[in-house]
Every structure is written in structure tokens, then in C-alpha cells.
Amino acid sequence: MQRGAFKCDTCGKDFKYKSKFQIHLRTHTGEKPYLCKICGTGFTNSSDLAVHMRIHTGEKPYACKMCAARFTRSDNLTVHMRTHTGEKRYLCKTCGKRFANSGSLTIHMRKHTGEKPYLCKVCKASFTNSGDLTVHMRTHTGEKPYVCKMCDASFTNSGALTVHMRKHTGEKDPVSMQQLWENSPKSPLNVHLRIHAGEMTDEGNMVSL
């Protein structure tokens, strides 16, 4: 295989085109000449800046053909499509669990390693991912962005709002439904026990006492 004409002295990577080589060198020097005029974030190349600008403009040109989801980047759409196909190519070698994207696997691995790199500066609590830290910070700031549209109650996270909504809809909690079934006289375990106790025949008929 023909090697590239431009070789990085720092890491040994080869590049065919000078433009790609120059962009790569910035990963070592830290140079980010392409600046966002709105928030000041810097980038090593113009393409990354163009993608970043969609955060400010709201543009999401990559649409999922199976649902209404849209994305700012094509690779985010690729990852999203796995929720429809069920593809999970990233395997945890410790427990065998699979994930649709590398980021989820990275977060999962911290359960095995115990790593919690996201630290609360207020109380020093630590978390495996930035999302959990964001939710935790609301306990300090008092922010409750998830608001019930039926009674105006507010919550720090979407899960708490979902549980709250069941009070309005009457929907039973899945765990509670399981408990109801387990306590039911017709559950397999209770039928089995009543047969041994002589309260029921093998055919399921009650014994008259």
C-alpha cells in the first residue's frame, strides 16, 4: 500500500493531501483558527465550525425516514437509526451487554471500573455521565424544568414527571402491576401453594371445606 506524502512526526500518521495534514497537526498544537462568532468556540477546521453553527441556527438537515427525528450531523443520524434496526455493535467485554453507540458503552464501562469523572463543585458528589451531573445540579439551583401541564407541578428530571403524570391518567406503575399479579389468587405461585395446602385440585377447582 502506497504511503501518504505527508507524515506527522509526532504520531506517525500519513496523509495524502497537504490540507488534511495541516488540519491534523492542529490536534497536536491545539490551534483552533476557526471561531464561532456567536459563542467563541474554536475549531481546527471549517467543516466542524459549519456543523457547530447548526446549534445556534437550529438547522437539522439529516432526517430519519422512519420517524420525525432530525439531526445536525450525519453520524448522529447513523447512531439513531440503530434504535429502529436494533443493531448494537458495541460489546462490553466484561458482562456481554451490547450498545448502539460507543458513547453509551464508555459510560457503561464506568460501572465496572468505578470511574466517576463528573464532579459537583458544590458538594463533591461524582457521576459517571454529564447528564446525571446536570440533573443533580438542579438540587442546588432549585431548577425544575419539567412541568406538568395539568397541575403546574414541576420536577428536576423527566422520570419524576412521568411518575407524577400517572396520578392524573390513572396508569398503574409497572412494578405495582407485577406485585398485584404476584398477590393474585390466580398467580402460578399461589395456585401451586393452594394445591399443596389442599385448598385447590390439580384441575384448578376449589375444595369445599
Rank of each mutant, 00 (worst) to 15 (best):
R82A: 03
K186T: 14
T85D: 08
S102L: 08
Y90H: 14
R89E: 07
K18N: 12
V51N: 06
I107K: 11
L209C: 15
C92W: 02
N129G: 14
G4V: 10
T156A: 14
T78M: 05
P61T: 05
R89L: 11
R110F: 02
A160P: 06
H168W: 12
P188E: 15
C64N: 07
G142R: 06
K121A: 14
H80F: 00
M1K: 13
G198W: 14
T29L: 09
G96L: 06
G159N: 10
A68P: 03
M66T: 12
T29S: 12
Y62K: 09
G198Q: 11
R26W: 02
L119D: 02
K121F: 07
R26N: 02
E143Q: 09
N183R: 09
T83N: 01
G58W: 03
E143P: 04
R166M: 04
S176F: 02
Y17N: 12
M1E: 07
L180G: 09
F15H: 02
A63L: 00
C64S: 08
C8S: 04
R166Q: 08
T78G: 01
M206H: 10
S176P: 00
N157A: 13
G30R: 05
L193T: 08
P33L: 11
G198K: 09
D9K: 12
G198R: 09
R166A: 03
H108I: 02
M206F: 13
T10W: 06
T29M: 05
E203M: 13
T128D: 06
K116S: 01
V135N: 04
S184F: 09
P33E: 03
L91V: 15
K144P: 10
E115N: 07
G103V: 07
Y62W: 11
R138N: 03
L193M: 13
G198H: 10
K32D: 01
C148I: 14
T78E: 06
F71C: 07
Y90I: 00
E182W: 05
H84W: 07
G159Y: 02
Y62D: 03
K167D: 12
T27I: 11
G204M: 01
N101A: 15
K18H: 08
T44D: 06
R98M: 10
P33A: 11
E31N: 01
T156F: 01
S74A: 12
G96Y: 06
T10L: 14
N205T: 12
A160N: 15
L49T: 08
T83A: 00
F71K: 03
D173S: 08
T169C: 10
L193Y: 09
P174H: 01
F21D: 12
V51L: 11
F6G: 05
S102P: 04
D48T: 09
Q178N: 10
W181I: 09
F127D: 02
T41K: 15
H196R: 08
D14Q: 14
K32Q: 09
Q22P: 00
E182A: 15
G86I: 01
E203D: 14
T162K: 14
T57R: 00
G58Q: 04
K121G: 01
T169E: 10
G30T: 05
A197Y: 08
R98Y: 10
R70K: 14
R166P: 03
K18G: 04
G131R: 09
I23V: 15
K144V: 10
R166I: 03
Y17Q: 15
V147F: 02
F6T: 04
L133C: 08
T85C: 07
R3N: 12
H24I: 01
E87W: 00
R3P: 01
H164F: 07
